[in-house]
Structure formats: C-alpha cells, structure tokens
Amino acid sequence: MIKSLLLISYEELKRIFQNKAIASVMFVGIFIYFFFYPQPYLHEAIRDVPIAVIDQDNTNYSRELVRQLDANKSININLHIADLQTAKKLIEERKIYGVVLIPYRFQQHILEGKTSPISYYGDASYILIYSNVATAVNTVASNFGAKISISRKIAQGVDPAVATNSVSPFNSQLISLFNPQSGYATYVIPAAFILILYQTLLIGSILCRLFSKNSDFEITFINQQNDAASSALLLLLGKLLTYLMLYLIYFMMYTVFANYWYDLPRLSHLVVSLSFIIPFIFSTALLGKVVSHFVHTVSDVFCLIIPSSMVIFFVTGLSWPKELMPPLFHLIGDIFPAVPAIVGSVKINQMGARFSEFSPQYWHLWILTIIYFGIAFILEKRNIQKAMSANVREEK
C-alpha cells in the first residue's frame, strides 16, 4: 500500500511539473504572486499627500495653521490657490487630493473668543488617502485650537498647569496592536497570501484530475487493483500526499520567509502554523477533486474558479467586516476552506493566538476535509466503476 501511495504521489508530482498548464498555476504562479503582489503595498503608510490651501484670511494665525498642517507627516502643502473652482479642477486632474479652506476673519473670530471652523474638501474616491488626510487635518486643527485656548487662559492670569489641564484634562495614546506601522500591507498581505495558496491549489487540483483522467498510469493501476473502492482510496490519498508536501513548502515561503522579506510581523511558532495549515491543504485539494467531476475543459475551470475568488475575498471580511454581513454570507463562507484558513492563519501568525483562540477555524477545516473526502471518494469510486464496466464490455 505504501509503495502504491508513493508511486501515485510521484506520478502526480511529475504531472504538475511536466504539464505547462498545471506548472504555470502551481509553480510559476506561486513565485510570480510572491514577488509581485506585495509591491504596491510596500510603502505601508500614506505620507506627504499633496493638498492645496485657500487662505482667505492671510493673518499670523492662518499662516501658523498652514505651517503646522504642512509639518504633519501625512500632508504636503505644495499649492496656495484662490478659489474652490481652481481646487476642483486640480483634484479632477489628480494634481492634488484635497484643499483646506481657511475663512475670512479667522484670526479676528479667534481673538474675539468665537469659533472659526476651517473646511477640508477631499477626494473621497481614494478612501485611504481621504481618511488619513482628513484625520491629520482634524488633529492639527484640534491641537492648534487647544494651544490658542491655553494661551488665552494664561493671559487671563490662570496658572499654566491649570490652563493646560482645563483644555486637555487627559492625553490619549493610540497603540496599534498587531500592526505597529498601521500599514495596509501588514493588514492585507498575510490574508491575501492564504487566498493565493487556496486559489492555486484548488485550480491545480482540478487540472491534475482533468489531465490524469484516463491516463495510461491510472488505467494500469486500476486494472492491477481490480477494486473500485481501494483504487479510489489510494488515488486520493496518494495525490493528497503530493499536495501536502508541495504546499507545506509554499506555506513556509509565504508565511515565514515572506514575513522577513517584507518586514511583516510574525508571532507564532512554525510547528503551530504547519499543524493548522494541514487540514486547509487537504480540504482545498479535496474540494478541487469534487469540482473536477463537474468540469470538462481547462477554460471551464478558470470560468468557474476566478469569479468564486471574488466571493471568497468578500466573505473573508478583508473588504468589509464580517460582523456587518447578512447571515447568508456567513453560510456561503463556511463552504470554502479559504475563509476559516485566512481567519485562523492571521490569528496565529500575526496575533500569536493560542489554540483555544483559533480552534473553531481548525476544527472547521477538518470537518470540511472529512466532508469533501467523502464526496470525492464516492465520485471517484463511481467513475472507476464506470471505467471498469466499460473495459468488461469491450473484452466481451
């Protein structure tokens, strides 16, 4: 039995690297994704976003506010313009991403103890840029207002310490847990890498069966066994062994080497990560074997899998919080191994979770493995029985 398993595994490995279609997905694609997918996200934090200023007041206070805005790491004020129409045109041309409007009598209102709100008009089609710049403008404006209020109280004879405490009774400190740079790469790359492993393994598993079906090796093996159940079991287990060996290597490349290469946080032990990813590899490969019984050409594979990847990306919670999704989307997500794998892998590798914290995803993957193994075994057995019956009729 062990010899048969190793022989099947070796044959499947040869097929992966000798067939151009399979190799492009399960080998070439893996390395292309690894090196090129993270490139746009390497500059994690948004810095020096170009914006313009409309300073209608042009006083000491307004100029000081502009200097403080320009000193913020998220903002780069490189234009002073006269009106909003000019700003609108520059935003449409993508020369700037927003404009700060300081109104007339800004300084006069402040000196009179009145509020003088400033306005920020930003391009919200780039939500990350808009959010960062709006937050920076709001922070600078709040600090500027607090300093003016403190100075006014001190001028009225209030003790500086009392004046400071009355304006700012407490200091807030923001600590970014598990994402020290508060960067988008740290957030998206680890999850996207698991999705890439899922997609390449699923497509590769389907293609392997399409190209191995009715091959000389499998026909000879089935005839030697002369039993549909044992043939189906050995073929499934032997191929799973190939995928396990290959994707454990890929997983280490994507979650260990990649973290050092791209300077991403990693808090788990390798053994814990590998033990979690084993049922993910099994369940994904077995799902591919199940799907392969319902597709017949290579184009069918890509037409089916590529659209489903968009659904998976959504239900994982990467683009929108899962807690805000309808229950139906949670049920859809339970079908695909990528969803619990992404959640569990991020918990383990980026958050240093204990077993009790990722056990729901771990057992979820094993349940999917058992279900898909049962379905794949039944379909493979039925297919082999048909082939054996056809051979018997031909011999007669």
Rank of each mutant, 00 (worst) to 15 (best):
L174W: 06
V188P: 07
S151A: 15
S172C: 02
F170N: 13
L233D: 07
L233P: 05
T186S: 14
A228I: 06
L177N: 03
L210W: 09
V133Y: 02
F217D: 00
D123W: 08
N165W: 12
F178R: 02
I203C: 12
F221N: 03
Q173G: 05
A229N: 12
L207W: 12
P190W: 01
L210Y: 04
K213G: 00
V137G: 00
A141E: 08
P117V: 05
Y120V: 07
S116I: 02
T200V: 14
Q224S: 13
G122Y: 03
I203H: 11
F193R: 15
L128C: 07
S119W: 08
I175F: 05
L236R: 10
P180Y: 01
P180G: 00
Y187R: 13
I194H: 12
F221G: 01
N226L: 03
T115I: 10
S212I: 03
I203E: 11
F193A: 14
S172Y: 03
I203F: 09
I154S: 14
D227I: 07
A136V: 03
S131I: 04
Y198C: 10
L128E: 12
G204P: 06
L197A: 10
R209W: 12
L174P: 02
Y126F: 04
D227T: 11
I189M: 12
L233H: 14
Y187D: 09
C208W: 04
Q156N: 09
S172F: 08
L128N: 14
Y121C: 01
S116Y: 05
D159R: 04
G157C: 01
T186D: 12
L236W: 11
V137H: 02
P160E: 06
N132M: 03
S176I: 02
S149Y: 08
I175Y: 07
I203R: 15
D123S: 04
Q199P: 11
Q199I: 14
V162W: 09
N138V: 03
Q173D: 09
Y198K: 05
A191H: 01
K147N: 06
D123H: 02
T115D: 15
